[in-house]
Design a protein around this nucleic acid. Structure first.
Lengths: 151, 151
DNA sequence: GTGACACCTGGAGTGCACTCCGGGTCAAGG
DNA sequence: CCTTGACCCGGAGTGCACTCCAGGTGTCAC
C-alpha cells in the first residue's frame, strides 16, 4: 500500500508521455503531484487511477477543456457529483453516437472494399460501365457544420 | 443526368464547408473542379460521390496525407486498384480496432456512471470508505507511445 | 441598373493537444 | 569522485486540419 511511482513508471502505466504528464499537471488536469524533498514527482496509486480515468475520457474524444471542468469539480468535493454525472452521461451519449456513425462508415468502407476486391484480381480493365459505389447509402449529411459534432 | 451543383449545394450535400471544399481542391483531394466561363465552380454528380467517399474516410479518421495518396492513385487509373484496396483494407482494420477500443472505454464509462448514479440521488455524503472505481478493469496500457496508434 | 448575396483568389490566422529545447539538478553504480 | 541517466523548469515550437480575411467579380430578382 501507499506505493508511489516515478514519472517514468506513471508514464508507462498510464500511456501518457512524460511531457504530457507534466503538461496535465500544469493545466490542472492532475492535482499537484507529491514531490520528494528534492522536487522529483512521486505519483500515488490514486494519481494513477485518476490518470486511468483521463485516459478513458481522452480516448473517447473528450476535449481538454471539458476534462478540466471535470477535474475541477472532482477536486471541489461531493457536492459536484450530480454535475459530474451529467457530464459523463452526456459524454457517453456522444461516444455512443460516434460509435454508431463509425460503424455505418465502416460498413460503407466494407462495401467499397468488396467492390475493389471483385475488380482487382480477375478483371483486367473490363471497360463495362460498372459504376463505383462511392455514393452507396446515406442520403447526404446536410448538417451545415455549425455544431461542434466532430472528433 | 449530368446535374451540377453550386459550391453551396456541394457543401450542403457533402457536409464539408465551402472553405474546406476549396482547400481540398487546392491540396489535390479533389480533381480540378469544372468551372463556368466566369470561374465559378460547378460540382458534378461524380464529384459529389467522391466527396461522399472523402467524408467516409475522414469520419473514420484517415489523415489528409493518406487521403492524398489515395486520391492520387484514383486519378492514376485502374492499375492502382490493388494499392487502393490494400490501403482501404488496412484502414478498415484500424477503424475496427478503434471501434473496439471505444467500446471498451464506453463500458468503463458506463460503470463509472453507475457508480455516480448510486452516489448522487440518495447518498448525502455517506463518508463510508467506498473507493471510486477509477481503476476498473484494463490492466493499464504499457505502450510507451512509440507507434502512432492514436486517433 | 442596383442592391443583396454568392463566389473568386492567395495568404495569413486559429485551435487543439501536445512535444521539444536548453540549461540546470539529482540519484546511484563503479 | 565521476559518470550516466532520470528528472526539473519555463517557454517556444510543431503538426494537423481547417478557417478567416481582404479585396474584388458574378448573378439575379426587382
Amino acid at each position: 500500500m501507499s506505493d508511489t511511482y516515478s514519472p517514468a513508471e506513471a508514464a508507462e502505466r498510464s500511456g501518457f508521455s512524460l511531457d504530457t504528464l507534466r503538461y496535465y499537471e500544469r493545466i490542472g488536469l492532475l492535482p499537484p503531484i507529491t514531490r520528494t524533498s528534492t522536487g522529483h514527482r512521486r505519483f500515488s496509486e490514486r494519481d494513477l487511477e485518476w490518470l486511468g480515468m483521463l485516459r478513458c475520457l481522452r480516448d473517447t474524444g473528450m476535449p481538454i477543456a471539458q476534462l478540466r471542468r471535470y477535474a475541477e469539480q472532482a477536486r471541489a468535493g461531493e457536492g459536484t457529483i450530480p454535475d459530474r454525472l451529467a457530464l459523463l452521461v452526456e459524454h457517453a451519449a456522444r461516444v455512443e453516437g460516434h460509435i454508431t456513425r463509425l460503424r455505418e462508415q465502416q460498413e460503407r468502407l466494407r462495401r467499397k472494399i468488396d467492390w475493389y476486391s471483385a475488380m482487382a484480381p480477375s478483371a483486367p480493365t473490363p471497360s463495362a460501365g460498372r459504376e463505383e459505389p462511392t455514393a452507396v447509402g446515406h442520403g447526404a449529411r446536410p448538417v451545415p457544420a455549425s455544431s461542434g459534432a466532430a472528433a
